[in-house]
Amino acid sequence: MSKPKFSANQLADPRFEDVNSADILRYFIQKISKNELKKLKIFEKEYLIILMKNIVKDEIQNELNPPDYILANKFKYLAFNPYDYKELDEATFNHLVLFYYDNLDFLMPISFTYNGITRQYTREEIDLDRNKFNQLLFWWKEQLSVGNKSSPLLKEIKDEYHKKVEILKEYFNQRSFGYNLFKRNVLKWECLMFYIYFIIKKYLQSRDVKELCEVVNNKYIITNYSFVHILSRHYFADFNTIYFNKTVIRDETLFDPWNLPQGVKIIIELFEEHRPNWDTEKDHLFFRYNLTTYILYFKEKFVDKLGHKLKEIRTLYPVSTESDNKKLTILKTQKKIIDYVFFMIKIRFLSL
């Protein structure tokens, strides 16, 4: 995989994009013409599918003013259609999932704004999106069913997805909702698990690894399981509060979900820095942020090459269950709680 010419931060910066638009366009057209799309990083592919939808054929540019072809049926005039490039399928599916997540019937009208100009999608455009979405959804369902043995990440995604479906089946069998709503929620979880897969794959690719094994303080390890579990169980509140008896992280300033391992790493390092000698907790720690107390669980699971026993990060969420509150009460009533400096820390800002 070749080194990107532009960083993810640069392509996300409108000021940089404005100044370097010609150079950016030249770079990506060159990649297309040389059939080098497979070499692009995920963040480049994300950018490219948006860029492609705004590059029209030369003859159209000569015939129409920019506002006219932006307001026209774009698929007819595109110089490059992202749907024609298999190398862009994952980025395309992620884009469609985010764009249509609240409209998976593809029935509601869709509009978009570009350069200050807003227009409605035509029925033809929506149908093209729907057909591509269904094609890629079929592929994704196969991954969730059969999977790829060479992908440790996909294994964790599959396991978590099937746990979700089993819980939905329990609700359906208890007649909490009908069959149509059951199928719709399964579809939404298929989409959501792809989004989580995409987030984590993007993170792994940014570090040139296929599997997350981030060791902290020679004692803890953040793995694919850690990332998948925390995102799928304790983020995306609309789902986890309706169908799953789990606490969710509602404070969006606590962690950047796209960079979650780095946030967890900061918490652990602070904990170890302020851990009192008398603290002997074996499987959890507490921390406080914005007046909310969180619990982070870990489990001794790995031994590294140097013989260190490593504790895998298992989950993290706001304290609310009876068992977690009991642990917290015991901790607070210990005589040396004043020495438990870390618990009193209020992390004001996590710079990730």
Rank of each mutant, 00 (worst) to 15 (best):
F182L: 14
R184C: 02
I110A: 03
L316M: 14
Q120W: 13
G178T: 03
K149E: 15
R175Q: 12
K57M: 07
I242R: 13
L98D: 10
L204S: 07
H229Y: 13
F227T: 05
K299T: 02
F172A: 03
V264M: 12
V264Q: 00
L136V: 15
P261D: 03
T280I: 10
I24E: 05
L212G: 02
K311Q: 12
D208R: 06
I268D: 01
N81F: 06
V341H: 06
F236W: 09
T293E: 10
F16M: 06
K164L: 00
L350C: 04
E160H: 09
L350M: 11
E300P: 00
L136P: 12
N148G: 07
I117E: 07
F194V: 05
D89R: 07
T293D: 09
L192V: 00
Y100E: 05
W189I: 03
I49L: 13
Y77V: 08
I199C: 02
D127A: 12
R207H: 14
E142G: 08
N73T: 15
L154D: 06
L328N: 04
L11H: 04
Y161K: 03
Y83F: 15
E59Q: 13
N73I: 15
Y47F: 15
Q61F: 08
M52Q: 09
F75V: 10
L181N: 11
L25N: 07
F298P: 00
H308L: 03
D129A: 13
F343Y: 14
K169A: 04
F236C: 01
V97G: 01
L153A: 12
Y220M: 04
S150K: 13
I117F: 14
E269I: 01
F342G: 09
A72K: 05
M1S: 14
S206F: 06
S323E: 09
S33M: 15
